[in-house]
Simulated assay, not measured.
Amino acid sequence: MTDQTHNRLNLSAGLLSCAVALSLVVAKLWAFGQTGSLAIAATLADSAMDLMMSLGALAAIAYAAKPADDDHNFGHTSAEDLAALAQSLIILISSGVIAFAALWRLWQGDAALPRNEVSGIAIVVFSIVLTLGLVIWQRRVAARTDNPVVKADSLHYLGDLIPNVGAILALWASSALGLAQVDSIVALGAALLLAVGALRIGKGAWDALMDRQADPAMIAGIAAIARDFDGVRGFHDLKTRRAGSRVFVNLHIELDGDQSLDKAHAIGAALRRAILRAYPRADVLIHKDPVGVQKHPDDPQA
């Protein structure tokens, strides 16, 4: 797949995500006005956060797609991590507001029953169907591009189905059983799910910005490729770091010091191609050392 096709698919997922989130915000805003349900308010806040996240993700995908330039030699993919970190903070604040409102109602003990439950349930069912359609497309795109932003967005929308189902339960319980407090309890659960998701997104973005190494399975896979590669006598100093959808790989390989420079270069270039075939979104830099070379005492990082 060419970079142009890769970027076009990712942008299509980002644009569809924004369109769905905007539609859900409008629909749930109307439903909240009709019902006054805190559970609906929780899903409305979640959809509003989804819209902000989707817009941020779209901007990050578009910016990260820019090629490396004189000012950004390693590309622009860290924009994805910055956007994700900002989004996680906004979601945490939103979950705190929802939880406070729900606890206040429970403490007061005089929560009003939601109104027009049928209209509210219809809107929530509509949002579930729309969200499922988005998730299906996002997963198709992620399967082809392996973009972590699209994957994370897909998982987040899939997680949104839980508070939506909870909102239906709250509306039904208030209508059929007159249990107004169920609305606040469901809102608390939705706020907790929002907070957990925000912390997970924030941790991933923070790890990337702090140059945390790549997934251990990927590191083991690269090591296996280098270990068994023809002409490579050994390797060391395998280092990785993540930046958005890119993984940067530095690797020292040990080669026969008596062979020609052309032969050594060919082995290193072939190994780089093998690693890229296994991990297409990697950026690989390979340094070649003669077998048995000792580090110079004045250059311990060599």
Rank of each mutant, 00 (worst) to 15 (best):
D207Q: 13
A79N: 02
W137R: 11
I275M: 13
L134G: 01
L285D: 06
A278K: 15
M49P: 00
M218S: 05
N147K: 07
R277I: 00
Q108A: 14
D237I: 03
Q138G: 05
D146F: 08
P148E: 07
H287K: 09
V135Y: 06
G166F: 08
L171H: 04
D256R: 12
A180K: 01
A302S: 14
L192I: 15
G159M: 07
L193A: 13
A19I: 02
V165Y: 09
A205I: 01
A217S: 15
M1A: 11
A190V: 08
I136D: 05
L58T: 13
E117D: 04
R227M: 09
A45N: 01
G231P: 10
A152T: 15
Q213R: 15
A112L: 13
R281P: 00
G14M: 02
V284C: 12
L29F: 09
A101I: 02
A41M: 10
F235G: 05
L161P: 06
W107I: 10
D262N: 12
I168T: 02
L134N: 04
D183C: 04
A173M: 14
L192M: 15
F100V: 14
M49G: 07
S175G: 00
N73S: 12
D298A: 14
G36E: 04
S245Y: 09
S37V: 04
A198Q: 06
H252G: 04
A167W: 06
S88V: 03
L130R: 00
K263R: 13
A152L: 14
L193H: 07
T43S: 13
A195M: 14
M218I: 15
D215K: 11
M53L: 09
S175F: 09
R277A: 13
I136A: 11
L255M: 06
Q138K: 08
A282H: 10
D299G: 06
E117G: 01
G133P: 01
N250L: 11
W137D: 00
A27K: 03
A68Y: 12
L261V: 14
D289W: 14
H76G: 06
Q87P: 03
G221K: 10
L193E: 07
H236F: 08
A198F: 03
D183H: 03
A170P: 08
L51T: 02
L238E: 11
G75A: 11
G96F: 13
A64Y: 11
Q138W: 03
A45K: 00
I185K: 02
R241E: 04
G120K: 05
R115N: 08
A180R: 03
